[in-house]
Simulated scan of single mutants.
Amino acid sequence: MVQRWVLARLRNHRFFSLAELNRAIAGLIADINQRPFKKLQGNRREWFERLDQPALRPLPAQRYEIATFVRCVVNIDYHVEVDHHYYSAPHSLVRQPVYARLTRFGVEILHGGKRVAAHARSHLRNKHTTLPEHMPVAHRAHLEWTPGRLLNWGASVGPGAEAIVRHLLTNRPHPEMGYRACLGLLALARKYGRERLEAACQRALVVGSPTRRSVLSILKSGLDRQASLPIELTEWQSPEHENVRGPDYYH
């Protein structure tokens, strides 16, 4: 009823800004609040001051934030995906269902009705936001590794391992992108031993595939125990054939 009354009063007016329209509506609202009720004593303003106003409480110090909730499952890498970004959760919750509470500036992860993680919201697609305390102990140790330390470790294994570590760190936009593969070489050294790892790295370099996956494949198949591949250093020469014109033809 109030909406129809306001629209009727303003139907012949033109407004050129939202602020101008709001001022006009505010004047009409003050007017309608003073109009006497038809079947009750008093008016809206009087009833508000007598019944509602005494029960009002102060407004919160912070404005209310609209939030949405998304059901997620913590992946094996202890992250949940929200709008194509990955946020960490405690690693003990791997494969557990959780809820992500999304606001304009934050992401909270809830489990069992309790908040277990809080992050600043990011709109970078396919990137990770990770808190160190969410990592397993083994993953936290990885944070201590630097490119220099990885290269020194590779050199301690042998020239082949050092060359592959250097390739993994320098052939990507950022050295950090090669950390996972380099740390994978460390795991291979623990499993197969440094001698076999060095032999596999040298073989991977010879075949032109200096990657952790190639080194692992060589170790699994036992190719590192075979004789080294021969490397042809001689210059290629054209075979003699009647259809091959030879260099003298172009003089």
Rank of each mutant, 00 (worst) to 15 (best):
A26W: 07
A118V: 10
F48Y: 12
R57P: 00
E81R: 13
E162H: 12
C72D: 06
T68D: 11
T234Y: 04
E162I: 03
H174R: 15
R166C: 05
V74G: 05
R203W: 02
I32H: 00
K39G: 03
P159L: 10
E133K: 15
K191R: 13
E49A: 08
S228T: 09
Y250F: 15
L186Q: 06
V157M: 11
G154A: 01
L229Q: 03
T234R: 07
V98A: 06
L59D: 04
N22Q: 11
N43I: 02
Y78E: 05
V82D: 11
T146Y: 02
V82E: 13
R44A: 14
E49P: 02
E49Q: 14
Q62H: 15
V116C: 03
S221G: 08
L169I: 00
T211A: 11
Y250Q: 10
P58K: 03
T129D: 12
L185I: 01
R45E: 15
A67H: 08
R101Y: 05
R101K: 12
K114L: 15
V98Y: 00
L186T: 05
L223Q: 13
N171V: 04
H174K: 14
H142M: 04
S122T: 01
A138Q: 14
L124C: 12
H128T: 06
H85L: 00
S228Q: 12
K38W: 12
L124Y: 10
H119P: 07
I231K: 09
R57D: 11
H174S: 13
G222L: 02
F15L: 10
S122C: 06
E20I: 03
L131W: 09
F16L: 11
F69R: 09
